[in-house]
Amino acid sequence: MAQVTTKDVMEKFKLTLVSGHEGIGRHITTSDISRPGLEMAGYFTHYPANRVQLIGRTELSFFEMLPPELRQERMMKLCSQETPAIIISRNMDVPQELIDASNENNVPVLVTSMKTTRFSSRLTNYLESKLAPSTAIHGVLVDVYGIGVLIIGKSGVGKSETALELIKKGHRLVADDCVEIRQEAEDILIGSPPPLLEHLLEIRGIGIINIMTLFGASAVRPYKRITLIVELETWDPNKTYDRLGLDEEKMKIIDTEITKLTIPVRPGRNVSVIIEVAAMNYRLKRIGINPALEFSRRLDEVIAMHDEIDEY
């Protein structure tokens, strides 16, 4: 699980640290942000203490209307053991009560020059992408006609060789051998290479080659959404392979189900062409044209017609 600390946020958004220096290493575990308006008014029953607390002009001006003894008590409650950070927008002055409470409980208090809503949305975006669940998969990710195709299969089955053939045909390499996958939103998986391996491809017999310098900038992509998985496997005569394309097999990565095709590899079978066609066929299906389904319907019609003739 990825982790974000208050320090990361401070550096990313160039925030000024006012007090609570010792808590700068606190972990932020959720991308939700709380604006503690009701808490300022004394309602702490459902206080989401583990979220970043963002205080804007509304909250602060209300706070200034409170009598001094209440201010101190509420700021102490706001600076809980779990609170990762309290951020004040618009470069407003931090109330003395908050500085005291934060120093006592080691909750970092930071100030931004941005407006509250704008900062809130930027922080949410940042936290969501940083906290997105991620995994690494052994495979090759190629952009084929705009479809992110993840080629998987046992070591030595020819994943990289197939990718090389696809690149020669004008498609783009995203990652070879090791694909880092993040689930950035529901049903959206984004694959990218580990930073060290960007643009590189390994071919048995040649070694490591750089696709970017060999084929140019049009042959690579830094990241791509994964929409189709192709599993290559050595042809097994005892196994039945899909002959119709009526059913779709799925594979689950993190929490997302992705359509998976299993393609048997055998000498003489041009796998790269098959993958190109699979990608185009997948696009066609998304547009609403399903040749397998249409053919099956036509066949049903003809069979039904024969039945009727037989009845006479």
């Binding site: 699980m1 690494a136 052994h138 070591s155 070879d176 051998d177 090791c178 290479p193 580990p194 060290l196 391996l197 590189l200 390994e202 490591i208």
Partner: peptide
């Protein structure tokens, strides 16, 4: 927290 296939050279090097 990074796990890679030990049969993949690029994975190991990454």
């Amino acid at each position: 927290d990074k796990k890679v296939n030990a049969k993949s050279i690029m994975g190991i090097m990454s």
